[in-house]
């Protein structure tokens, strides 16, 4: 494996509240190789987006990085000053948000929004920036791109707007893109197109992607490796075929089991009993143990073993064996 583009080491994010200090991200580590697509799945509140926001330095106060390190292409970035971090955003790390309807400024033409981003990060003239903006729109498949540069966001459909957002995230040629639920707000028919587009563009440029989603189908389609998060911790991390076909962590097993399959019969989908605990009231030991069919005394006392950055292991004392999951 070549040197990773991004290396997250034992990242901890804390939110101090009046009652207690919450840890939405707890001891998370992963590496991303150049051109790799890492899927991050988990329920709402599992810390997926929070990890992404921490990487790009956009945590909303009072949330802050309380421990661990983030390395981007051999440079540590979690301790950069605000103005230095600003230069990393957009230029080195791009970000795509969930809702394309709200992530574009409604009062500015999209050509201007593209241009300002390009001019901010690349040493080019205004005319050159204009040309690149046009090129960026063409690459994401906007028809009649030259005319559309002068259009406002409300003149585009949802799927087209997400294409514009992708163009904006990629226009300064970052080496990593964090896509935070890029298809959740879109029409099902458009979702696959957007994922395919994102995948193709990143392959062409060798851009790595952190694809945050709660949709296992998207992961199966796009990701190379997948990280499963539960209550702020990594539950399982590994190549996507292994994790989906032979999940090791009982939580992943539950998630995979609850995916609707076209081939399956008409029996009810499996579901995981209970719901994810709130951050303020995490149980001792492994956060999943109250819902876990295999939990015993060990799980009630000690959180699962920590994952190393590259491993395909699960943070579980009693990983599911392949026979059981079949």
């Amino acid at each position: 494996m070549t040197d990773p583009v991004l290396s997250v080491k034992n990242l901890v994010v804390e939110i101090p509240t009046r009652r207690a200090v919450l840890r939405p991200v707890d001891d998370v580590s992963y590496d991303i190789a150049p051109g790799e697509i890492l899927g991050v799945v988990g329920e709402s509140g599992a810390g997926k987006s929070m990890t992404g926001n921490a990487v790009i330095g956009l945590l909303d106060r009072p949330a802050h990085i309380a421990g661990g390190e983030i390395w981007l292409k051999g440079k540590r970035i979690d301790n950069l000053r605000a103005d230095q971090m600003r230069k990393v955003r957009g230029k080195e790390i791009g970000m795509i948000f969930q809702d394309p309807l709200t992530s574009l400024n409604p009062l500015l033409r999209i050509g201007d929004q593209l241009e300002e981003t390009i001019l901010e990060h690349l040493p080019v003239s205004r005319a050159e920036a204009r040309k690149r903006a046009l090129q960026a729109l063409e690459e994401v498949g906007i028809p009649a791109a030259a005319e559309r540069l002068g259009s406002y966001p409300h003149e585009f459909s949802g799927g087209m707007r997400q294409r514009v957002v992708i163009a904006l995230a990629l226009c300064a040629e970052p080496s990593l893109v964090i896509a935070d639920e890029p298809t959740t707000a879109l029409d099902v028919s458009v979702q696959a197109q957007i994922i395919a587009l994102l995948k193709r563009l990143c392959r062409e440029r060798g851009t790595s992607v952190i694809l945050v989603t709660h949709d296992m189908g998207v992961i199966a389609e796009a990701a190379d490796r997948v990280a499963v998060m539960y209550a702020g911790r990594l539950a399982e991390l590994g190549p996507v075929e292994q994790v989906l076909n032979a999940p090791r962590h009982p939580y992943t097993d539950g998630l995979v089991g609850s995916m609707p399959m076209a081939s399956a019969g008409k029996e009810r989908l499996r579901q995981i009993p209970g719901s994810m605990p709130r951050l303020g009231s995490l149980p001792d030991g492994c956060a999943f143990h109250p819902r876990c069919p295999k939990a015993d005394a060990e799980c009630r006392q000690n959180p699962g073993p920590t994952l190393d950055a590259t491993g395909g292991r699960a943070a579980c004392w009693f990983p599911v064996s392949q026979e059981v999951s079949a």
């Binding site: 955003r89 957009g90 791009g94 981003t117």
Partner: peptide
């Protein structure tokens, strides 16, 4: 947020 994420001043 998106404007910040694009690294604008």
């Amino acid at each position: 947020r998106f404007a910040r994420a694009r690294g604008l001043r």
